[in-house]
Write a protein that binds this DNA or RNA. Structure first.
Length: 977
RNA sequence: GCCCGAGUGGUGGAAUUGGUAGACACGCAAGACUUAAAAUCUUGUGACCAUCUGGUCGUGCGGGUUCAAGUCCCGCCUCGGGUACCA
């Protein structure tokens, strides 16, 4: 018999698909389209582990399934190839990041001589149906010229709040020329007013300065997250818990002139349009919280000094305006200097310095400690004209709202604590609310002590307060967002250069046709004066003539290239446009997008933002990039540990290892006398050290060993292969082991999968052993796609066995044996049940359950000894998205000439599933007692009659009369006694 | 703190709209084939009680709605994720 040999079949069909371009996709208006996309990977030197393909396998199954349903499927793959690791590696080794990147994708050898298999080869082995002719790399100039082009487009537009969309900057210029900026309602921080003649009198440089304030991408002196270790600024989503997401380095706040993208202009649309997306609530909520819309009012407080300054505060609770007893400014607030009185100057300076020294992390960890300082100045309450003290405190953030709050200690816990700390007034504006233990932060209260707001509910009071504030000109109703404009420049080399040059301080965009390629530089480090690496480039190495003093030295952030790559996949080789509009019109947005949830506030938000801009500018006909999103769970590693004796304990030369049970199972070890412990050491040189040391080890072994990761490939089951361990590295060569019952066991612990933890399971090894189909089915069989789960190959043999069994259906007595006979009723029922369930499950994106369905069907058909061509054909078809190699092979054995990809998914026929009878579970008071088989055509009454007269029923009734009999035809019978 | 999500056998998990809890696998046990191993096949496998027929309990905990609850409602507990002086 021809054995099932996955290795052979895998290669054969992967080659066939590549040569025949089986999965190439073209615009075809006669066919409905379907766009399936994975979040493209960053090609790191570590290569793929089994967690990476999880999402790719699911999306590939869906793509193949949709193809069988007759859809024209777009299923591309590429690389997000700009990024930090390649640059760090370049700094260390001098290797150009482009070279590292290429090796990581295509395979080769790295600088230390390690073999790199390459992402592409690893992916190919799993048998994905990608259309590789569409491959893109964000670091390829042919790609990033269009990233630069999009930047130019964003630079050349502004956001019109009246029309709620981005518009060309030329239109704004025309308005300025005609009537100045008085009638313009734009998303901008620019607050000066000018007339048309003012505009005309502006010098060119001034005009550019003004326009820069209106553009959707602009240069601005803002507070940024500066990471000294990485030598660059970071966006908010790249900072987690006060440290950089990559590398975990401290991050501090710094005011720098940086490029910013005006994502705040789109805040409202980014929230509203979530409603139309098929995403989980979890990820929608994450984005909503990140954008952080809050409604309230901004209110002006005048100071009472000689110079009357105005402090603008933002509050969501204008109803508590009469509860204000002080004002707190952020320590960095620009008014602090101006209003601080002479006698308070020292205190304020000191406080400002101390808060400047705190890193973001310290600020967060010291949340509980209330600190602040009094400026000596007072503000005047707009409604009561009372004097209220002005303080500074670092619980007020400089970069949220206006950097100033009106403190209402009765209604805000932090204000309450601040008031307690510094013995400030706590006036109560809530009826019958106790403030002795904390502020009253709920909203179910009646307002008192508040003049015109007295007696109102919070909700009513908010409305009326805003009305009055606006009427008297003390402020206005306002919507505030937590999200800040996204910092768009990075002080790095390995990113997209800006198509920008400077004349003096004014930035200008290069002409349309110019692409700025990354120039060669001597070192990938910042210059001596702290300029980014690109400042090292010689003027002529930029390869273009620019009419200014210098080029922009910053590069774009990692999210630039990934914000629009799904568009380029539609039309990857277009040399004239970033994407042809007709083509974009055919493919539309991504129907199914699969990737990790960690991109919720980064990539996913930025892509939506750019898509909306390009939509506003009429380049694409849709305003959301990803219609349906699935976040696959993380596959965690199963780390193994051994315990190394610290060398300072004895002066032994060989490394000595203990297993977990000896070290950590203290009670068990102590149950044995010390002689027994010494016995265990017999095989090692430790046996010969002095008794005192052995006593020490016996008493407190734990403090003399260090727990180290051991490569999971050296462990089978729980047992460490000590011989292989010795051979695995030079320094392990002379290892000695303290055995426990002849074995060295290392039980696992669940951790993130990573190279440094030696717990990485590569797909390559598994494909080699079991074949791609087994790996594909098994990764799906592991559990729901969205769920996090530890990697464990225990169950893989079950899936392997299923595929072998499938293969055997085609053989009898060592020969291929397929019959053309009519299938039996039972056979038809089995396959049609499977067709129906598979389709239903895939339609609801349940990727794990179809594997069970296949197993059941194959088991049933095996029992029936079914070898009918009609049945086996349908079986191959439904399994083929999961196990394409074996199904192509068997499909061919069934006599088909074309790839199974071009076949049609079978339609289940309900007539084969019709049952004549139904097995009714009969329950008494909800407890199932026995099963009664009755005709499906039986009426309710008939069923009841049959059940009642059944002798088993009589038994369970124990002579009582049933109170009620519930019959659900086709389902159950329940008798209430 | 706030916002999401999840808790089911020894293990991974199934149960789509309330209707036979534990599908399908792994593991384990017994058996067949084999000199042996691998492979394959058969049987059993939630817990407890019972010689069997069978019974009792059982989906994190406590209550409720219902003829019927893993599923719906209320109150908790634990774990995971996001976010965090956001005014």
């Amino acid at each position: 018999m021809e054995e099932y040999s996955p290795q052979k079949i895998d290669k054969k069909w992967q080659k066939y698909w590549e040569e025949n371009k089986t999965f190439s996709s073209r615009v075809n208006t006669n066919k409905p389209k379907f766009y399936v996309l994975d979040m493209f990977p960053y090609p790191s030197g570590a290569g793929l582990h089994v967690g990476h393909p999880l999402g790719y396998i699911a999306s590939d199954i869906y793509a193949r399934y949709k193809r069988l349903l007759g859809f024209n499927v777009l299923h591309p793959m590429g690389y997000d190839s700009f990024g930090l690791p390649a640059e760090q590696y370049a700094i260390q080794t001098g290797q150009h990041p482009a070279v590292t990147t290429k090796t990581n994708i295509e395979g080769g050898v790295d600088n230390e001589g390690n073999k790199i298999i390459g992402y592409r080869k690893q992916l190919d082995k799993i048998g994905f149906s990608f259309d590789w002719d569409r491959e893109i790399r964000t670091s390829d100039p042919n790609y990033y010229q269009w990233t630069q082009w999009i930047f130019k487009e964003i630079f050349n537009c502004w956001y019109n709040n009246k029309t709620q969309r981005a518009e060309k900057i030329e239109k704004l210029v025309k308005c300025f020329e005609k009537e100045g900026n008085t009638n313009i309602n734009a998303a901008t921080n620019y607050d000066k007013v000018f007339s048309s003649s003012d505009w005309k009198d502006f010098k060119e440089e001034e005009k550019q300065e003004v326009l820069l304030e209106y553009r959707l991408v602009y240069l601005s002196n803002t507070w940024v997250n500066w990471c000294p270790e990485l030598g660059t600024v970071l966006a908010n989503d790249e900072v987690k818990n006060g440290v950089s997401e990559r590398g975990g380095h401290p991050v501090e706040q710094k005011k720098m002139r940086q490029w910013c993208m005006r994502i705040t202009a789109y805040a409202d649309r980014l929230i509203k349009d979530l409603d139309n997306l098929d995403w989980t609530d979890a990820i929608k909520d994450t984005q909503k919280n990140w954008i952080g819309k809050s409604q309230g009012a901004s209110i002006f407080f005048k100071t009472n000094g000689e110079k009357r300054h105005t402090i603008e505060v933002f509050t969501t609770r204008p109803d508590t305006i009469f509860g204000v007893s002080f004002i707190v400014l952020a320590p960095e607030h620009e008014l602090v200097k101006k209003i601080t009185t002479k006698d308070q100057e020292k205190v304020i300076k000191k406080y400002q310095n101390s808060s400047k020294l705190k890193t973001e992390r310290e600020r967060i960890s010291n949340v509980k400690i209330t600190t602040g300082a009094f400026t000596g100045a007072y503000a005047i309450h707009p409604f009561t004209n009372k004097k209220i003290p002005i303080w500074i405190g670092d619980y007020v953030l400089a970069n949220y709202g206006t950097g100033a709050v009106m403190s209402v200690p009765c209604g805000d816990q932090r204000d309450w604590e601040f008031a307690k700390q510094f013995s400030l007034d706590i006036p109560n504006v809530f009826k019958d609310k106790d403030l002795s233990k904390g502020a009253f932060t709920e909203k179910d209260a009646t307002i008192i002590n508040s003049k015109f707001l007295d007696g109102l509910s919070v909700k009513e009071a908010i409305k009326l307060a805003i009305l009055n504030i606006e009427k008297k000109g003390y402020g206005k109703g306002k919507t505030q967002y937590k999200i800040r404009d996204a910092v768009f420049s990075r002080q790095r080399y390995w990113g997209e250069p800006f198509p920008v040059y400077y004349k003096g301080k004014t930035p200008y965009i290069l002409k349309e046709e110019n692409t700025v390629k990354l120039p060669e530089i001597d070192k990938y480090l910042p210059t001596a004066d702290g300029s980014p690496p690109l400042a090292r480039a010689q003027k002529d190495s930029w390869g273009i003539d620019y009419p200014g003093d210098r080029m922009e030295y910053n590069t774009m952030p990692g999210w630039a290239g990934s914000s629009w790559y799904f568009l380029r996949f539609m039309d990857p080789n277009n040399e004239k446009e970033f994407v042809n509009k007709e083509i974009a019109n055919y493919w539309q947005n991504v129907d199914l997008y699969i990737g990790g949830a960690e991109h919720a506030t980064g990539h996913l938000l930025y892509s939506r933002f750019w898509t909306k801009i390009l939509y506003d500018l009429n380049y694409i006909p849709f305003n959301e990039p990803f219609q349906k999103l699935i976040n696959q769970g993380m596959i965690q590693g199963n780390s193994r540990f051994i315990y190394k004796l610290k060398s300072e304990v004895t002066n032994h030369t060989n490394p000595i290892y203990f297993s977990k049970s000896i070290v950590e199972d203290l009670e068990k070890r102590k149950a044995d006398p010390i002689e027994k412990f010494k016995e265990k050491l017999k095989k090692t040189s430790l046996y010969y050290v002095n008794q005192k040391t052995i006593n020490l080890l016996y008493e407190s072994l734990q403090s003399y060993v260090s727990k180290i990761h051991v490569d999971i490939n050296l462990v089978s089951g729980y047992e460490l292969d000590t011989q292989a361990f010795k051979k695995s590295r030079k320094e392990f060569n002379k290892s000695e082991f303290v055995f426990e019952d002849e074995k060295f066991l290392c039980p696992g612990e669940i951790e993130k999968m990573s190279k440094s933890k030696y717990n990485v399971q590569t797909p390559d090894a598994l494909v080699e052993k079991f074949g791609a189909d087994t790996l594909r089915c098994y990764e799906m069989f592991l559990g729901p796609l969205e769920q996090h789960k530890p990697w464990d190959i225990q169950g893989i043999t079950g899936v392997e066995g299923f595929l072998k069994k499938l293969w055997r259906l085609f053989y009898k007595d060592n020969k291929l044996n397929i019959s053309n006979d009519e299938p039996t009723k039972q056979e038809l029922k089995s396959i049609h049940k499977a067709i129906k369930k598979t389709q239903e499950d895939l339609e609801r994106y349940s990727f794990n359950t179809p594997v069970s369905i296949f197993m059941i069907c194959v088991n049933e058909l095996s029992t029936l000894k079914c070898n009918k061509k009609a049945i086996l054909s349908d079986l191959c078809l439904i399994i083929s998205p999961y196990a394409p190699h074996i199904c192509e092979e068997l499909w061919q054995k069934l006599g088909n000439k074309e790839s199974i990809s071009f076949a049609k998914f079978p339609k289940h026929n309900p007539k084969y599933l019709v049952e004549n009878s139904h097995k009714y579970p009969v329950s008494f008071n909800g407890k199932m007692r026995f099963i009664l088989e009755l005709s499906v055509n039986s009426s309710k009454e008939e069923i009841e009659k049959q059940v009642i007269k059944n002798e088993k029923t009589l038994k369970y009734l124990e002579g009582k009369t049933p109170k009620k009999v519930i019959v659900v035809p086709g389902k159950i019978v329940n008798i209430v006694v």
